[in-house]
Structures are given as structure tokens and as C-alpha cells.
């Protein structure tokens, strides 16, 4: 049998055998977990507001608090379980970003503070930052010419 045909046949076999991703179940739990994290954030905002911060200040303080909480939970080995269960619901909020920074920081401690933690801290967050900034830059240019 020609190699290409054999590969095509095998490709079909694999496609048939592999389980379908449980999209509905995963979407539901992503919604619940992500929603809960946002709900916690809302409580924190309200708390800071009642303590006399204005809207912007309360938002910044809430982000900092959530980042701290996620970093702390990552250190305790809990946050990866949250994302494993909640999928995008745990990855997309700012807490997921904090997790993606703290996890390599913990992991690469063994290779030293400079070439371990220092060099690899942005292993996962780096691509997000780079392409986030590039997208913002492209959007800015489009806005400048077409507003």
C-alpha cells in the first residue's frame, strides 16, 4: 500500500478511536468557575468601595488582590486543580495569568535565580504579552487611520 494512502487510512482510524472532547460539559464548568472568580472579584471591589476607594482605585486594588490570591493558591498547589477542572474559566481571568507567572517561578527555582527563575519566568506569560502588545499596536494604527 502506498505510504500516503496508509497514513490517510490510519488518520481516519485515529479520528474514529479518539474520544470526542466533552465540549458542553467543559463549557459549563468553564462558565461556572470563571463566573465564580469574577464574583469573588466583584465582592472585593464592593468591599474596597465601601472602604472609601473610588472606582479606578478599587479596580486596581481588586486586581492586585486577585493576583495575590491566585499566586498564593498556586504555591499551595491548588490553582492547577482549579484550571484542570474549570479549563478556560481558570485560565482566562487575571488569576490564570498570575498562575502562569508563579508556576514557572516555583518550578525553575532549582536552576537558580538568574538562569532559572529569571530566564524562564515569562515562559508561558511571555507569548501572551508579546502578541497582546502586537495586537494592541495594530489596533492602534488602524484606529489612527480610520477613526
Amino acid at each position: 500500500m502506498p505510504a500516503i494512502k496508509q497514513k490517510q487510512l490510519y488518520y481516519d482510524m485515529v479520528k474514529q478511536s479518539a474520544p470526542k472532547p466533552r465540549v458542553w460539559r467543559n463549557t459549563f464548568w468553564a462558565f461556572v468557575v470563571g463566573g465564580l472568580i469574577c464574583l469573588v472579584g466583584q465582592f472585593i471591589i464592593v468591599f474596597f468601595r465601601t472602604r472609601g476607594l473610588d472606582v479606578n482605585e478599587a479596580g486596581a486594588a481588586t486586581s492586585a488582590t486577585l493576583v495575590f490570591l491566585a499566586a498564593f493558591l498556586t504555591g499551595l498547589g491548588v490553582y492547577d486543580e482549579v484550571s484542570r477542572f474549570g479549563g478556560a474559566g481558570g485560565i482566562v481571568p487575571i488569576t490564570g495569568f498570575a498562575n502562569s507567572m508563579v508556576a514557572p517561578a516555583l518550578e525553575y527555582r532549582a536552576e537558580g535565580m538568574v538562569f532559572g527563575v529569571g530566564a524562564r519566568l515569562f515562559n508561558i506569560a511571555g507569548p501572551v504579552l508579546v502578541w497582546g502588545i502586537v495586537t494592541a499596536w495594530v489596533a492602534g494604527i488602524l484606529y489612527y487611520f480610520f477613526r
Binding site: D80, G87, L106
Partner: peptide
């Protein structure tokens, strides 16, 4: 895990395969 994929404490969802 740290050599082939992600840091161990990094949260992500793995496919069933």
C-alpha cells in the same frame, strides 16, 4: 512534565487521549 510540557503547578486542561 517540566521537560516536555508545562511547569507542574501551571493550570491547564489535558485532552482525554
Amino acid at each position: 512534565e517540566r521537560q516536555y510540557r508545562f511547569p507542574t503547578e501551571m493550570g491547564n486542561q489535558r485532552p482525554m487521549t
